[in-house]
Nucleic acid binder design. Structure first.
Length: 473
DNA sequence: CGACGGGACGC
DNA sequence: CGACGGGACGC
């Protein structure tokens, strides 16, 4: 572009792919005006107005290069049809064709809104949607299945409404999904499946990112982001609360797992899995706290919580045979709930202990529950550090959330990143320093954290990068 | 005792 | 309709 000092090779003009805009504007529009009009959408790497070789007059076509495809797409979505300079014609904005592809058709939204991903075979289309909705409004999700058996092939398509959303997903989703733009279907089929096929997409959906607000939508005990409104919604005057909770679970959970989970809230003094006469779990457990606020809070946080992932716990109050409608107990429960909530809400995002300075009778609540004596928190090594050692970790029964794992595994120093294998119960811990990895392994192998047992081993070296297809986004 | 990769839609 | 310039690091 116009920055000669960093002149990109021709083949880099579209690196990353779809990060360059083709703009049709009035011949009077200057590069500065373009830069001004587009700079709010991202990092502009270059602006170029194409001019006639001889006369040096603008031909009314321009290129704007962004550093990311999502920025270019957003700029396109927002600026197409806008008047850039008063009194000039509205501009047209498209993703530029890559310079090597000798095409002469506009790049259509159809080609920019559907991504192709690799997913665990256990994923349902709803799982797929849940995973990718954080990047934008999804029109539909499809999983490729064996036509006779109906079993998933571990591949899926996600159609977004906007190119910027698909780009956002490709840029930000976990690398293991290997998200790329889907090649358009070979023929334009005439059927009306998904209502996307034939008709050109004219207008984008109006809503902002699909606001499915499940505060518990990913497994992991998410303390921080809970919606403050939840607390006002709770009706403390109804008398519909107590210190006792009944947990119902369809999946077989051990008493230890339930204990670890509900003991995250301070004040638990009883946890018993109900068994039948053969000692088999009946799928119910009784929990009791020593105060109303903890029980209220536990129900609020853990009802609907998925543990293990895919198994929603149901948590309800059960009668503890006490009169808790008095103003004293009401105030007490409100007080504790508010205390705990504000601590959780304002508290350190990845720290080990939550202190309750003005409520001394509450034990300290840790989001990490383990017998291991953990060193203090350490900083993560920069993401671009060279990995010197990788640990392979097997979780039982289910993987711990990434933020918890970071919290635990960082404490031995030089942790670069935590990587969970989607759909499996295993993960990798990348360390920049071999000794740190060895220390972590020695301290954590065979240990239990938040009710999850871990095997911590040295990872086999990754298989050599073979003939990998270039990503086409 | 678990493992990273890989890849395409009934025309 | 509306598709691809100008000019040089440092061996």
């Amino acid at each position: 572009m116009e920055d000669y000092s960093a002149k990109p090779a021709i083949e880099n003009l579209d690196d990353p792919p779809n990060s360059r805009l083709f703009v049709v504007a009035s011949r009077s529009v200057t590069e500065d005006e373009l830069r001004n009009g587009f700079c709010s959408f991202g990092d502009i790497q270059g602006v170029w107005v194409v001019k006639d070789k001889q006369t040096k007059e603008s031909k009314g076509i321009c290129y704007v290069k962004f550093s990311k495809s999502s920025q270019a797409c957003l700029a396109m979505e927002e600026m197409h049809g806008k008047v850039l300079v008063d009194g000039t014609k509205p501009i047209k904005v498209f993703i530029a064709q890559s310079r090597s592809s000798g095409r002469h058709r506009d790049v259509e939204d159809e080609e920019l809104t559907r991504i192709f991903v690799m997913i665990p075979k256990t994923f349902s289309e709803d799982d797929l949607k849940d995973t990718f909705k954080e990047y934008g409004d999804i029109e539909y999700c499809v999983i490729i299945k064996n036509k006779s058996t109906g079993e998933s092939k571990g591949l899926g398509y996600v159609r977004y409404y906007k190119p910027s959303q698909a780009a956002h997903a490709i840029e930000n989703c976990d690398k293991s999904y290997r998200a790329i733009l889907a090649e358009p279907r070979t023929k334009q089929s005439n059927n009306e499946e998904y209502s996307g096929g034939g008709a050109p997409r004219v207008e984008y959906a109006s809503g902002v990112a699909g606001g499915g607000v499940d505060s518990m939508n990913q497994y992991g005990f998410q303390m921080a982001p809970a919606d403050p409104g939840n607390y006002q919604v709770m009706d403390y005057r109804s008398g519909e609360f107590s210190r006792c909770l009944m947990v119902s679970t369809r999946a077989a959970l051990t008493q230890e797992q339930l204990f670890a989970l509900f003991d995250l809230i301070p004040g638990m003094n009883y946890c018993e899995l109900q068994r039948d006469s053969y000692g088999m779990s009946k799928g119910h457990a009784l929990i009791r706290y020593n105060n109303y606020g903890s029980a209220v809070y536990a129900k609020e946080k853990l009802n609907g919580f998925e543990f293990p992932p895919g198994n929603r716990l149901q948590v309800n109050f059960v009668d503890d045979g006490e009169d808790h409608s008095s103003s004293v107990s009401r105030m007490a429960s409100q007080f504790v709930a508010a205390q705990m909530f504000s601590t959780a809400y304002n508290g350190p995002s990845s720290s080990q202990v939550m202190k309750h300075p003005s409520y001394s009778s509450a034990p300290q609540m840790s989001r990490i529950q383990t017998n291991v004596s953990l060193p203090s928190l350490k900083k993560l090594a920069p993401p671009d550090s060279r990995s010197k050692e990788r640990l392979f970790v097997v979780f039982n029964p289910a993987p711990l959330p990434v933020d918890i794992l970071e919290d635990v595994f960082c404490r031995f120093g030089s942790l670069i990143e935590v990587h969970l294998v989607p759909g499996r119960t295993v993960g990798y811990m990348k360390y920049a320093d071999k000794k740190c990895a060895d220390d972590a392994m020695a301290a954590l192998h065979g240990q239990v954290v938040n009710g999850v047992k871990m095997k911590v081993m040295l990872a086999d070296p990754p298989r050599e990068e073979s003939h990998k297809r270039a990503r086409t986004y």
